[in-house]
Design a protein around this nucleic acid. Structure first.
Lengths: 228, 228
DNA sequence: TGTACATCAGTGAACGCGCGTTCACTGATGTAC
DNA sequence: TGTACATCAGTGAACGCGCGTTCACTGATGTAC
């Protein structure tokens, strides 16, 4: 685990939804936890309207606070987004770890489970993905805890590949390249679904978990039919 | 091929770079080809500063024309972006087709070549990708020629999968699912590289073509080691 | 326990900005006769 | 060949907007004595 500067940063689903944004008059002068309140409002706003539309003034407005107050807790708008991106990576890591924990057997199955969890997380939080992987945070290196959280997520896949190789269940070869292949697969599928590129035929909802399962399975088994 | 409304739409590399944006005074009152000139300026601007920073006023300024003139050629800023996205898909399709054409033999090798070309295209035009797959064009369905161009790109992969299956070189099963797996793989790798997620160790440039080749190869052969 | 004081979270006004879009116009073009 | 005219590409001013950020301030809090 990496040290996190955002000490009480909430991690997505684990965040209890605040009852209702209090109107300014109803509230004490000091908010008490404005930093997290702003983050939660921003998160909800991003989930609803997308990240591009996010404005700090609007977030403050919805939180029931003057728009200048955010600057007591964040040096800039970008730093708010960086924090949100960081929380996204923490949530993604948690989701993968949880999925892996339920697959106690075959290391290959564990890797696949992590991949499916990746897709599931991304499809459920498409706008969050945009903050994590888009260009809203221009230079990630200015936010070391963000980089740490992102690295941590990658390392879930990487270590599963390593374990799989050690157990003889995953193809040998450069561990990082194999992990990258796995990552790229699920990342691509996630974004194709999340950005609406995939039109499915027939009625009903797109069952993204079944799709992810099929695609991840195809990658495990390989697309070619030749002898090994 | 699909009919294209943008009749003389340039397709990326094929576009001859205009000599220099003429200053307003040097130019005749009627520009002659302002539509394409605006598109090319916008393209260059996106390649340089990213798509998020693009403003129609700035594009007009750089083209040496009043900012209102764009509205003689495009109904809105979004329609400019939609046209650029469309050209991106045309360029991507052309790049894949060209790569496939040089691999005349094995259908599987042809599919892999298309995938590598996809990555190569995306890495060379990272900001263009953003317009093609981002949310700058809110609703693609309002731009039927954009949808057609995007569909066309997908169908390059899809038809290669079909051919590979017919030739017995690509795994049987739902053609669209297999094509989606291939698409997701290269799409994911492209975006991971283009958005700077991949840090490579050691000195020197990241050789993205070698990386793409390795990753695509891993997908063809499969990640697992089990018996088939 | 009571008071003076330092601290700092939250305020509201202001700065300066660039944007997308519309409008009535002007000047160039080409075509009908 | 020459002229009247319709067309329409490009203009510059204007509208109305919301934004990120800064500033001097005010009010609440908690702590030192």
């Amino acid at each position: 685990m990496y040290p996190l500067s955002t000490s009480n940063a909430s991690v997505l689903e684990e965040t209890p939804v605040p009852a209702k944004p209090k109107r300014r008059a109803e509230r004490a002068y000091h908010h008490g936890d404005l930093r997290n309140a702003l983050l939660e409002t921003a998160l909800a706003h991003i989930a609803g309207q997308g990240a591009r539309a996010l404005s700090l003034r609007e977030v403050a407005r919805e939180t029931g606070v003057s728009h200048a107050s955010a600057y007591r807790h964040f040096p800039s708008k970008e730093s708010v987004l960086a924090t949100i991106a960081e929380q996204g990576f923490l949530g993604l890591t948690a989701a993968m770890r949880e999925a892996v924990a339920t697959e106690r057997g075959d290391p290959l199955a564990r890797l696949c489970a992590a991949g499916i969890a990746y897709v599931d997380f991304g499809v459920k939080h498409p706008n969050h993905l945009q903050v994590m992987f888009g260009d809203l945070v221009a230079n990630h290196d200015e936010y070391p805890t963000l980089v740490a959280a992102a690295t941590q997520a990658y390392e879930v896949l990487d270590s599963l590949v390593r374990e799989g190789q050690q157990a003889g269940r995953v193809r040998q070869g450069n561990e990082r390249t194999v992990a990258l292949a796995a990552w790229a697969q699920v990342h691509g599928l996630t974004l194709l679904i999340a950005t609406g590129q995939i039109r499915h035929e027939g009625p009903g909802q797109l069952d993204h978990k079944a799709l992810a399962s099929a695609v991840v399975g195809l990658q495990a088994e390989g697309l070619s039919t030749g002898p090994r």
